[in-house]
């Protein structure tokens, strides 16, 4: 495949993709959980805040979020996440935007998980004298996560593939390397297939594992 694409550049690019995906997955899970709690909370203002978050970020194209993180947030508002290097700033913003965007989907997946829990559970928790926070932490969220593993898995897989969008702000992940290779060697099916295969290797086993996990952890009712 010529000098443009070597195993080491390929591995480092996919390494960057994995790091980007892992950090963003953690961020999205935390953010999504917080927003889901807001949306099911008994306080109207917090519910509206959660709904607003989901509607705004779920309906904004990720590319737009990415580009505005650099053109808007960094260059105009001056929010630089890594003043020492442009690359570092782009990478961190990519993590933030992937987290923010997928957080909205995580929230909705979790909320669907919450909806699988019979009303009696929340009522029982409340009658035992648990506060909203306690009943969330000990009764509702654990069941919600177990019920929502399959949709959360879909979100995770989508997130892994969406890391490629970070190429539009110059993060050196897999899609970036693919563009470099195509530029240097001309477009060809083989280059495309190598990168497609890379993503299949990342996502396919994960999907199978999450499916079996969702089956094993399902709350039997």
């Amino acid at each position: 495949m010529g000098n443009g694409l070597t195993i080491s550049t390929l591995l480092s690019a996919f390494g960057s993709t994995v790091l980007l995906a892992a950090l963003s997955a953690i961020g999205a899970l935390v953010l999504g959980t917080v927003v889901a709690v807001l949306r099911v909370s008994p306080v109207r203002v917090l519910q509206l805040l959660g709904t607003w978050y989901v509607n705004v970020f779920r309906n904004t194209p990720l590319t737009l979020l990415m580009v505005s993180s650099i053109l808007g947030a960094t260059f105009i508002l001056g929010i630089n996440l890594d003043p020492t290097s442009i690359k570092g700033n782009a990478f961190r913003w990519a993590v933030v935007m992937l987290s923010v965007y997928h957080g909205a989907f995580v929230c909705e997946a979790l909320r669907s998980g919450v909806n699988t829990i019979p009303d009696g559970q929340a009522e029982a928790a409340r009658s035992m004298g648990l506060t909203f926070g306690q009943s969330m932490q000990h009764v509702l969220l654990p069941q919600a996560f177990r019920g929502a593993i399959a949709p959360l898995g879909s979100v995770l897989i989508a997130l892994i593939k969406n890391t490629t969008v970070a190429a539009v702000i110059g993060v050196s992940e897999a899609a970036n390397l693919m563009q470099v290779t195509i530029e240097n060697e001309g477009s060809g099916l083989s280059i495309f297939l190598v990168f497609a295969l890379g993503f299949v290797i990342l996502t396919l086993p994960l999907g199978l594992w999450l499916t079996s996990l969702s089956r094993r952890l399902a709350v039997k009712r």
Binding site: T63, V67, I70, L71, S85, I86, K87, A90, A167, V168, I169, G170, N176, L177, M178, Q179, V180, I182, E183, N184
Partner: peptide, 29 residues
């Protein structure tokens, strides 16, 4: 991102701070 120009300049001026975008319009902005 990935253009020959970007690769050239990285080689020529190793210490340069390079921001890459998907299209030139974003760079102009």
């Amino acid at each position: 991102t990935g253009s020959t120009s970007a690769q050239n300049v990285k080689k020529k001026v190793p210490g340069v701070q390079l921001q890459e975008f998907g299209t030139y319009s974003e760079c102009v902005a």
